[in-house]
Simulated scan of single mutants.
Amino acid sequence: MRRYFLKNPFWVRWRYPGAVWKVPTTKRELFLTFDDGPHPVATPYVLDLLAKYQARATFFCVGTCIERSGHLMERMVRAGHMIGNHTHSHPDGWVSDTASYLEEVTACQNLIGLSAGELLFRPPYGNLRFRQLKALKKAGYQIIMWSHLSGDFDQALDREQSVGYMKKADSGSILVFHDSEKAFENLREMLPRVLEHFSTLGYSFKTLSNL
C-alpha cells in the first residue's frame, strides 16, 4: 500500500508550483471530486446520490474506463458535472518519462473530447515530475490536487477516522473519493455521511469550473 495523507501537510504543496489544492472562496461551498471512473456500478451510485443532494462534482476519468463505460460521461454532463483527465491507464508520473506520460494524457483527452469544457488534470497517486507539470501547464491544463483525501481505496481504512478528517473541511476545500470497484464498499459508507453533514451545515457542492 502506498503511503498517503488524509489531509495534506503544508509542505506537500511546495512540490507542485501552480497546482490547485484549494479553491479561493468566501462562500460556503466545497468541491467534490471522483477519480478512477467511470465504473458501471460505482459511478451510477455516485450520480444518484449527488442528485439527491443537488450536488455537483468533477470526475477525473481514466481512459481505459471510458472505453468500457463511456456512456456514463453523457450522464455526468447532463447532470451538470465536470469531467477531468486522469490519464489513459493510470501510470505513476514518478516512474514515467515525460514523453510517454504526455501521450497518456493526450489519449485520455481524445476520449473525453468535447465533454470537457476546460482542461483539468489530476495525476494518478498525486505523483508528477516537475517537467511533466510544466509541460501540462504549457498545454493549457489546470493541475488539480486536493486538500482532503478520503482514502476509500484502502481496504484497511479506518472509516471513522477518515470521515472525521473530511468533516474538518472548510470553504474551498477539494475532497477526493473514487468511483471504482476497489473503493466502492468504503465509498457507499462514507460519501452519504459527508454529503449529509455539510448539507446540514448549509454548504453547497460545486464543480471546478472557472478557476
Score class of each variant (00 low, 15 high):
A156G: 08
S147M: 07
L175M: 07
D170K: 08
A135Q: 04
A139F: 02
M145S: 13
M145G: 13
K138S: 00
A156N: 14
L136P: 14
S171K: 11
I174Y: 09
K167D: 01
L133I: 07
I174W: 09
L175Y: 05
I143L: 08
R159T: 12
S147H: 01
G140I: 00
D158P: 14
S162D: 01
L149W: 01
D158E: 14
K168P: 12
Q161E: 15
K168I: 11
A135D: 02
K168R: 15
S173R: 00
I143A: 11
M166K: 03
I143F: 00
H148M: 06
A139R: 07
S173W: 00
G164C: 12
V163Y: 14
D152S: 02
V176P: 11
K167C: 00
K134V: 03
L149V: 01
Q155Y: 07
D154E: 11
S171T: 12
E160M: 10
V163S: 13
K137P: 04
I174L: 09
V176Q: 12
A139S: 12
S171Q: 08
K137R: 14
S173N: 05
M166D: 01
D158W: 11
L157C: 10
L175W: 00
W146C: 12
L157H: 08
D154G: 06
F153L: 05
Q161G: 15
S162K: 02
L149Y: 02
K138C: 02
G164L: 11
A156M: 08
H148I: 05
A156K: 13
R159K: 08
K137I: 00
M145L: 15
L157M: 09
G172M: 10
D152H: 00
Y141H: 00
D170F: 00
A135S: 10
D158A: 13
L175V: 05
S150F: 01
G151C: 07
Y141A: 04
V176W: 09
K168C: 15
Q161S: 15
R159G: 13
S173F: 01
M145I: 14
S162C: 08
M145W: 13
D170W: 03
D152W: 04
D154S: 08
L136G: 12
I144T: 02
G151Q: 03
G172D: 10
L149A: 01
D154T: 14
S162M: 06
W146D: 06
F153N: 00
L133M: 14
S171F: 10
D152N: 07
L157S: 05
Q161N: 15
K167L: 01
D152I: 01
G164Q: 12
A135T: 05
I174C: 09
R159C: 13
Y141W: 05
G172Q: 09
L133N: 04
V176L: 11
L136D: 11
L133E: 08
L136A: 14
S162P: 03
M166S: 07
I144E: 05
I144M: 03
K134T: 05
K168E: 15
D152K: 02
G151H: 01
I144V: 07
E160K: 08
Q155F: 04
G151N: 04
